[in-house]
């Protein structure tokens, strides 16, 4: 009895300094990450400011039913998932293409310049990207309309024509991400054993054969693992791009509204229960997808698993 008491005490003493070191993070996690999880109860309540989070009346699944029976649900979820796949596929293809081009550049100075310029958009905010989009698409002074009119065409009111925006958003997403994204594939290419390529050349392989039979197969594992992991974020479209670049223009919602912008607008309208319900749906779907893809990656390549 006494023995175990002493033992327990000494393990505790051994752990104490570490517990103290973790204290700031744990304090933060409990207050600012876990407490909001309890706040999710407002998804099942008609929140009002007087009764507060705990006092407001319960309404069951009303908010969920409202969201899933509204007309918005199809275009919002469709846009969110559609943009995810569109963005991911185009971005990956572009990044791999750029990585290959970088790989073949002989001059180190030139390569350094290309890499620096390509990564430039990664350092700017979505607000600045919105400015750039505005210089191109402003209906009064935008470059696009200037060019169209110079060729005798009719000016387009870009910020009220939803049909152009999938392409515009795709362009800015890839524009912003490609420089950083290609680094991963470039590093994978740099990791290829030179002697393998030399041997293939001695056997008379041409460049296309080397790319198809040596280089592509070497980077395939990393491409597939990153793709699987990416599916975990299918439900988070990214607020910055979709809120800032279309300048929150209501006319564009059919093609620019995604779950994150919808949640923000519902919050602004003051309907806490509704906002929380949609957010809870997003969090649950995203969470389970992440668990799923992490489980898959853990089986194929444990080193790449997130946790």
């Amino acid at each position: 009895m006494k023995q175990t008491g002493i033992k327990k005490k000494s393990t505790f003493n051994q752990n104490l300094p570490f517990l103290i070191m973790c204290l700031p993070v744990m304090f933060y996690v409990i207050c600012f990450k876990f407490l909001p999880l309890f706040g999710m109860v407002v998804s099942f309540k008609d929140y009002n400011y007087i009764d507060g989070i705990w006092g407001s009346p319960w309404v069951g699944l009303k908010h969920f039913e409202f969201f899933f029976s509204s007309n918005d649900v199809y275009h919002i979820l469709g846009n969110t998932v559609g943009y995810f796949f569109l963005f991911y596929i185009v971005k990956t293809i572009c990044s791999i293409a750029v990585a290959f081009m970088f790989y073949f550049v002989a001059s180190n100075k030139a390569l350094k310049y290309y890499q620096t310029v390509y990564t430039l958009p990664n350092f700017i905010s979505w607000v600045l990207v919105a400015y750039i989009a505005f210089t191109l698409f402003s209906s009064e002074y935008g470059m696009m309309n200037t060019i169209i009119e110079a060729f005798g065409g009719e000016a387009i009111s870009w910020y009220s024509e939803p049909k152009y925006w999938p392409v515009i958003l795709l362009f800015f997403h890839v524009w912003q991400a490609v420089g950083m994204n290609c680094i991963i594939y470039y590093a994978a290419l740099m990791g290829i054993d030179e002697s393998l390529i030399e041997a293939a050349k001695l056997d008379g392989a041409n460049l296309r054969q080397i790319i198809w039979h040596i280089m592509i197969p070497t980077i395939t594992p990393i491409i597939s693992i990153l793709a699987i992991l990416a599916v975990g974020s299918i439900m988070t479209a990214g607020f910055g791009l979709f809120y800032q670049v279309p300048m929150d223009s209501a006319a564009l919602y059919p093609t620019t509204d995604v779950i994150d912008t919808y949640i923000y607008r519902t919050l602004v309208s003051g309907n806490m229960g509704q906002t929380s319900a949609v957010g809870m749906f997003q969090s649950l779907v995203g969470g389970f997808l992440l668990l799923l893809v992490n489980g898959i990656v853990k089986k194929i390549s444990p080193d790449n698993a997130v946790f």
């Binding site: 949640i263 806490m272 906002t275 929380s276």
Partner: peptide, 24 residues
């Protein structure tokens, strides 16, 4: 420490609950 941290990577409260807890 580790398990609660992993949990925060998977699930989050979402905008409205976070807003309410932070402000209220």
């Amino acid at each position: 420490i580790v398990y609660p941290l992993i949990f925060t990577m998977i699930f989050h409260g979402g905008l409205a609950p976070t807003y309410l807890i932070y402000t209220k």
